[in-house]
Design a protein around this nucleic acid. Structure first.
Lengths: 244, 244
DNA sequence: ACTAAAGGTCAAGACTTTCGACCTTTCACC
DNA sequence: GGTGAAAGGTCGAAAGTCTTGACCTTTAGT
């Protein structure tokens, strides 16, 4: 008879190149490197990440196959970040088959981002407000620009700023675990989803101003409620898009 | 000139035996194995965790050095879980030097466990209630027993049940990310802290009943508020203990 | 006393990662 | 236009970790 031992699951050792891949993905997704930027050179990356070049190359090879970066040889070459190309039909199909997962992901976002917004209202400093305000104006600009010319590039730029704004709020909450949770929640679901809309809605930026205002006024309840409303707006938009 | 590249941190590859160690610790801390229990045999563990015996042994060796398990050879031998021995003076000193970390950890617990309690109220099924109710009565019994005879063993038993109760609430919320967050929050801070109190307060179980009642009545607001109050009670107790 | 069930040991081989040397491509500058 | 520097590309040896399987030792139960 084997012991039932629920709770002990097989461990999966994570290869060094997978860890590297993860970090590079994250750095691109959080907008540290935008489309067109060059990543640090192979040798620099190996140095920064303290792994061998071999490992860096393994990660790079995967990103290249995915089309996420372009590899150019020779002087002035390097790894150039490409705009992500999502297959919206595919994503939509996947999400339709996983309604429960989508719901859970949004519920989780509402919880952690709502709480982050509340704490941010209580703890924000002047520098936080300045940073968020700047992101807000950049988003306005990006949104307007995107209506004159709807390129994927513009959409990506807006989403990069959107991510930066939400993470900025989380940072202003000054709780490391909570920040990680927010980052995690966004990575898990929002990035693939968000990038699939393809074009921006006119109201995409409406709620951000309200959130910032609530944080500025140090009204925790309001800040939480506004953020929750914002995320639930997005949820509705997504659900409508899934119905279509 | 080196690229600044903030955000790309050195990756640390995690050895298989560390992953195993982690799972074994978790399984003991969440009360799947209590002091006195025998873990599955070396060979079974290797099978269950799909690693080689060598790896299992590496993890076991560490747990043994820490006094967390006792290794007995021969037939009828095995790995026997020991009651954890925390050094309360040491822990207190560490926590005094890290007040901010303690505050953040409690803030995080309030957020995720409060939210879990709310969702649990909305989604709980009959089976959840039965499970929680049973844990509650076991806790009552353990608490009473601990007053007749304050052994470390009794305290550990109560804490095991306490953990099971809180995780049970999180499970009833039926959101995997949130469950992980609750587990994480408890592991990060509460287990070392909780086990350091040394003896149980008479009111240690008072709030659990209220939490369960609120969840039973499907009153989300109340369930959240009660859980928050419970955790903040604990926070106060801990802070008083740190002052002493 | 024997046997089965446990932990303990060892060695060969596979796989991953590191390190260092060298090759090839490309651009910028002279 | 040549040349050098800066990039990616390739290779091979050595070190480290993990797997596998065979075997040893200890101990409790029959």
């Amino acid at each position: 008879m084997t012991t039932s031992s629920i709770g002990l699951k097989p461990v999966r050792q994570i290869a060094a190149h997978e860890l590297v891949l993860d970090q590079m993905r994250r750095s691109m997704e959080t907008g540290q490197f935008s489309p067109g930027d060059r990543l640090p050179s192979e040798r620099e990356l190996a140095e920064i990440l303290s792994v061998s070049r071999t490992v860096v190359r393994a990660a790079i090879a995967i990103l290249e196959r995915e089309g996420r970066i372009l590899v150019r040889r020779g002087r002035g070459g390097g790894f150039i970040v490409q705009a992500p190309t999502y297959n919206s039909t595919e994503t939509r199909r996947m999400m339709r088959q996983n309604r429960e997962g989508v719901r859970d992901a949004f519920d989780y976002r509402v919880i952690v981002e709502g709480a982050a917004s509340r704490l941010a209202a209580e703890r924000r400093r002047t520098a936080d407000l300045a940073e968020l305000r700047e992101l807000l104006t950049s988003m306005e600009a990006a949104l307007l620009a995107s209506f004159e010319e709807q390129t994927p590039m513009k959409v990506v730029e807006f989403q990069r700023l959107d991510s930066a704004f939400h993470l900025g709020v989380a940072r202003a909450a000054r709780n490391p675990s909570l920040y990680d949770a927010v980052e995690d929640a966004r990575r898990k679901m929002w990035l693939p989803v968000g990038s699939v809309f393809g074009r921006l809605e006119k109201n995409a930026n409406d709620r951000h101003g309200d959130v910032l205002a609530a944080i500025e006024s140090q009204n925790g309840d309001l800040a939480e409620a506004t953020m929750e409303a914002h995320i639930n707006d997005t949820r509705s938009t997504l659900e409508a898009w899934l119905q279509r």
